[in-house]
Structures are given as structure tokens and as C-alpha cells.
Design a protein around this nucleic acid. Sequence first.
DNA 1: CTAACATTTTTCCAACTGGTCAAAATTTCT
DNA 2: AGAAATTTTGACCAGTTGGAAAAATGTTAG
Lengths: 231, 231
Amino acid sequence: MAPRKVKSVTPAKAAARQRPLTRIQKEKQDIILEAALEVFSVHGFRGSTIDQIAEVAGMSKPNLLYYFPKKEEIHRRLIGTLLDTWLAPLREMDERGDPFSEIRSYIRRKLEMARDFPRESRLFANEMLRGAEHVIDMIEVDLKNLVDEKAKILLLWMDQGKLARADPYHLIFSIWATTQHYADFDVQVRAVLGGNRNGEGRFDDAALYLEQLFMHGLSPRPKAAKLPESS
Amino acid sequence: MAPRKVKSVTPAKAAARQRPLTRIQKEKQDIILEAALEVFSVHGFRGSTIDQIAEVAGMSKPNLLYYFPKKEEIHRRLIGTLLDTWLAPLREMDERGDPFSEIRSYIRRKLEMARDFPRESRLFANEMLRGAEHVIDMIEVDLKNLVDEKAKILLLWMDQGKLARADPYHLIFSIWATTQHYADFDVQVRAVLGGNRNGEGRFDDAALYLEQLFMHGLSPRPKAAKLPESS
DNA sequence: CTAACATTTTTCCAACTGGTCAAAATTTCT
DNA sequence: AGAAATTTTGACCAGTTGGAAAAATGTTAG
């Protein structure tokens, strides 16, 4: 009789079989994911090495590979959870609320995320820059559906005269862009604000400015309203 | 007597000696830089390989290395020229012009750059994401100085009551963010606008929307003006 | 304690990486 | 044409990378 194969169940295989992970396995995976976020968010997928991640995670490379047999697997997991978190603020935008306070809250929440989760923002940006290979499906379905839904709400508000008429999609884009900028281009922002206190209160200042920009920029205007004319 | 070294002058060394490059050398370098832009802008520095660049450039790796002896050298050259081009639109903002038409032109030019030079935008974004190692000096000096200068102009306009009072730095950031978004997050923008015509006229729509946002958002208001109050 | 399993470390490998070098091919100059 | 310089190629190399295998070391239930 052939010698029985030792059936060592790696955490990865356990997960594949839907067997629940032990507490320790979960912890280790979290440590790895945390380290991977740190590395991937700066260097991108190809630019990051398992060794780097392992070092940040405080374990050996083969040990790391015991929990995530493929580099791609780590990345996939990170990206997978990311989009959900990332869209949460937009999901909260409520049709029944006041348009301006809803938009203002949305801006604030996005700005807070840029402040508190800059690595997630950069990971996402990295992914977008290289064509979103790994997330394109999610983007085209979940993200698009959510935005479509919220765009409808914005249009409704505009119809009710509560909000200046404007392209709701680009409106959402502009909120994304302006808020994520403070995470993705942090170095630049700090360098420019630079000086002595190195852009200390930049997030508060940004919040103030963006509120003003969007609140004024989106205030409904009497029909005769005209853009200032250039000379 | 030792045999005379053959003094083959590589283009790189010629450049180092300030000797002018021949037309062919210039052409080949341009081909390489073009290919490198293509590759670096998507994969970042670490994520790109010389082989990839060489293939896009249609030459062998050693041949490419004949023109640029170091991978870093290619990158440095790209980045070096980039910042100049990148800041040109801001440089054009003229104190003597009308504030609104100046700002509007600036937005338009930036948006055109996002449309016509998305790879440059992405290269820059890539660089920012990973901490701007290679450009931090330029950012901290040239960029900062330019922005400081233009911020003063904006403040002047605000003092003259021609522009709503707002943080001039964040004002500039918001223009950068909203315009570059259409290059850096192009995949996302297209996926969301998606549908049949796949965001065909997205740049025109964006121009329209952004003009409205900024023109209204920055219109000087009578002193009593208040932000709409949330319930 | 010990068998069964889970985790970690050591060793190793094949593919890929940036880069060298000398020879060959080509172009340029006289 | 032919010498001299330039450009291109092919072979090669040392270091790195993702990953496999197996041995060594825990850990835990009986």
C-alpha cells in the first residue's frame, strides 16, 4: 500500500474548503494583510516583493506563503475588501435628507477617509493607474450601479430646485478627486503648504475650502443667473 | 606599451561631455523615452523592466542600454522634462487678466492636458504615490515657489473683491485634483459613465461641469451671504 | 506521554532582473 | 574603396524574485 499522504491542512486550503479559520490563523492573516497594504500602497503590485511584505509582517517569506500561497492572493484580498469600505460614504447619501447637508457630510466623510486611511486610498489609486485589471468587474458593476443610483437622487434634488443643475456624475467625480487628492498626493500637498508647520491643519483647511466651493458652486440660482463674463 | 583603448563614444558619454548628440542619437533617445513613458506610466519605476521598454521601443535590451546606461537615467530624464510641461498652464495665469477668465482658462488647459497627455499625468501620479523620491526637491522648490506666487495673485483678486475669499492653496489643489482625475482615474470614469457610448464626450462634459462649479463656487458674494443651512 | 496536526524554518530552484562585454554589423568620413 | 567610428547583437553574469519541498519545531487532544 502506498504511504498515506500527510494531510497537512494549510490555512489557505482550509479557507478554500470553507472550513472556518482558527483565531490564530485569522490574526496572522490580518498581520500579513496589514503589512501588504503598507507595501502595495506605495510600490504597487509588481513593484512590491513578498520579502518586503514578510519583513514588515515580521515573518519569513515561506511562512508568509504558508498563509497566502500566492502573492496575487494577498492583493486580491486587499482589493476585495477595499472597494466596500471605499464606497460606504457614498452609500450613506440619503435621498430623504437635505441635499446640502448630505453632500457636505459626504465630502467630510471622504476627507476623513483620506486622512485616516491614506494607504487604502493609494492602493486604490495604484490599481486605477494600471488599468484596474483586478477590479474592473467590481467597478463596472457594483460601483457603477451605486453611482447610477446616487446620480438619480442628485437629479431629483435638482429637479426640485434644491440644487443647481449640473452633471451628477461629474459632480461625484469632483468630490472623489478633491478629497482623495489629500491622500494620494499627500507629499505634494505637504511640500507646497510646506514652510514651518508643514501643512499641519491641511485637512481642516481643505474641509473648509471644499465645503465653500461645493456649497456655493452647487447653490441653485435664479434662472437668469449667468457665469461671469470674460472681458 | 599597453594596447590603446578603443575610444567608442557612447551617446551617454557624449552627453556627459556636453558633446552635442547627432540627429540619429536624438531620435533613438526619443523613441526610448516615448516607450519608457508608456511603460513607466502604467507600472511605475520598480514595476517596469528594461526588457518591456526595449520591446515597446522595438530594440534589444543591450541596445537600449547603449543609449541609457541605467534604467534610472531614463526615468530621471522623463521626470525632469515632465514637471516643466506640467506646470506650464499654471505659469500662464496672469495677474493682469480677469480672474474668472484666467481661472477658467487654467481649468481648460489642465483638462486638455489630462486628455492629450494622460501618460504624463499618470507618470506624475505614480511618482507622487510612492513619495516623490525622485522629484521631491523640484516639488519643494520650483513647484512651491510657483504656487506661492500664484496664490498671492489669487489673494490679491480676493482683496479686490473680484473673487470669493477662499484658501488659494486649496483652490489650486482642487483644480489639480479635478482635472488630473480624468487622466489618472480614466478607467473608473469610463466604467462609471459606461453604458453604450462609453463616456465618449466625457472631457467636454467635465469642462462644462467644472467651469460651472468653479465659477459659481468662487463668485464673490455680498457680505451677508451664508451657506445654506442644514435642517 | 504521545500521536496527530499545525506552524515555522532551512534549503533549494528556475525564471527574471539590471547590466557587462566583446564581437559583428553598419554607418560615416576621407 | 577602405579605415575609423558608431551602432547592434548574442552570450553571459550575478543578484533578486516567486515559490516548492521537506525537515524541524511547536501545540493539543487523548
